[in-house]
Design a binder for these strands. Sequence first.
DNA 1: GCAATATATCTCATCGCTAAGACATCTGCC
DNA 2: GGCAGATGTCTTAGCGATGAGATATATTGC
Lengths: 157, 157
Amino acid sequence: MQQWAAERPDLDISPMEVIGRLKRLSRLVEAELKRTFAAHDLDAASFDVLATLKRSGPPYRLTPTALMQSAMVTSGAITQRLDRLEARGLVTRTLSDADGRSRDVALTPEGHALIDRALPDHLATEQRVLSGLDAPRTEALVDTLRTLLTSLGDDLG
Amino acid sequence: MQQWAAERPDLDISPMEVIGRLKRLSRLVEAELKRTFAAHDLDAASFDVLATLKRSGPPYRLTPTALMQSAMVTSGAITQRLDRLEARGLVTRTLSDADGRSRDVALTPEGHALIDRALPDHLATEQRVLSGLDAPRTEALVDTLRTLLTSLGDDLG
DNA sequence: GCAATATATCTCATCGCTAAGACATCTGCC
DNA sequence: GGCAGATGTCTTAGCGATGAGATATATTGC
């Protein structure tokens, strides 16, 4: 910041204070979570798919399009994630009987067992990452993030 | 959240409220910034290198290692970023006269001109992304991010 | 002075993603 | 009923990153 102030005193660099820390925090948190995933032979992408299927509830079955929208990635990315998970026997892909273009992606018993094992650890890691904040500050943070998301047109708000 | 509460009522999923939004916001902001970079024929990686050289001040010259530490990427990533920037005539790589193992990476006049053009646009985009927050809330957010970064061992704190 | 170790950079194989587009199937309109 | 356009999934080329390791140069301890 001091460097910028010296180099370009004509510019208001205060937004960098926020955006820079936001990016940095996000990277650090991702790195933390990654370690937990790795302890369960997973990466963030695989965990995301398994967790999405799990939280969808019975019959733990979604289409690739639903997974794509949840993960906010392209269809090609989902195809490849599913290739990997299917090869490991964690999900199955079957033809949809309602729509011939579509597939049903479902958790196998192994997939179920894995996500049930990984999830508590994952939540503990998230908890730990946030342990530097007390409850009121955490609540204020959520509120602020919600405001920013809404102002950027995200309906998760 | 409701889905998780239904599926695993035994787990405390409140950390997801924070981490999920943090990740989502970070992705949305990155996408916004990307559009500004693209308007100047840049991507985030190239902008990062040019901006780091610029803010280092005269003589606008750093080693690949310094750039690597600033960007928090591996040495291979920096090598390839510099390959691209050098091919476009935006930076030069010369042998260091102080240390035969090292290189000096410097901005060319073209590199200088480009970062000087892109930077005000970039800051305007950052400003716009944050425009949903008033000054006190922005300050509170920075403070909270600082706390979290420090608790995660980041000295940018 | 020399060997051992550390450091700086680059190389290369691999990974997961995007973007464009191929292909099959469904839907709505005439 | 049949055709046009929309939709769902997969394929493929290319990109930028990682991670392991190669190479060259510096530094340290004996």
